[in-house]
Amino acid sequence: MRGGTYSHAGLGQSLRLLIQQGYLLVLRDFRFRYRQAYLGYVWAVARPVAGVLPLILVGNAFGLGGDMAAAEYALFAMGGFLMWQLFWDSVISPQWLARRLRRTFKEAPLRPESVVAAGAGLVLFNASFYAGIFVLASALAQTAPPTTVWLALLAFPVIILGGLAVGSFFVPLTFVYLDFRFALPLLSPFLLWTAPILYASPPTGILAVVNRWNPLTYLIDIPRQWLVRGTTGDELVFLFCAMAFVTLFWLGLFFLRRAMPIAVESLP
């Protein structure tokens, strides 16, 4: 069996087509999901934003930020949470979209990668809202962004890629057994609290060890530092982490392409 359907076309054309497909699939999803909502797409970002506020309040009350001031912790937690949310959206968006395209997958030669592209599009749409919220929060806290903020912006695609990498593995699996879909929300708090997203990483103890072994620590904490504080000295670690996630992303795509036809065949 030969490889890519569009292998004859140039890579640029192929990528453009993928982006086009992704955009249209996102549009299709939005049209369906928010067809009866007055506020429409606002609901796409309302939940994470509403979720982070109590966490900030609780975190401040329990001193999760260590020696950070309240405003500084608020930005720290919000930055971390929005980046986490970016990652988590990337994990779950492809399988959301794919499940709503089951029939199309059964009937039409829809490329599996297109749901990854669509997932990325969905996350970018959310990201624009998250960025706006963070800018607003910074303005309210009267905090000027550090010079390393551009590094944080560059890290965004890596975070999204990391999430999509994990999500790509789940797309075919959720086609076969819905258990994978139901298990994902359970995984969410585990990942959230095993990485120093809403708290400062302790120097010692079990949590410190867990934080150290959790790749999300590097994927989120370092860009968050670039966003709210400045350089961390761990830039190289992030680079290695980014390379690992990019590799995982290609592996995820390979797995998706190989597994998706099997998964589609298993559909009733």
Binding site: Q21, L24, R31, T104
Partner: peptide, 30 residues
């Protein structure tokens, strides 16, 4: 593939959006 199935049809899409989606699914370059 030539068939008359509903290519990713969502009844709340406009005709134009649906055609664009179907064209993309059939692999027409942008």
């Amino acid at each position: 593939l030539v068939f008359s199935g509903r290519l990713g049809m969502n009844p709340f899409l406009s005709v134009d959006e649906y055609v664009r989606l179907a064209v993309a699914i059939h692999g027409a370059e942008p």
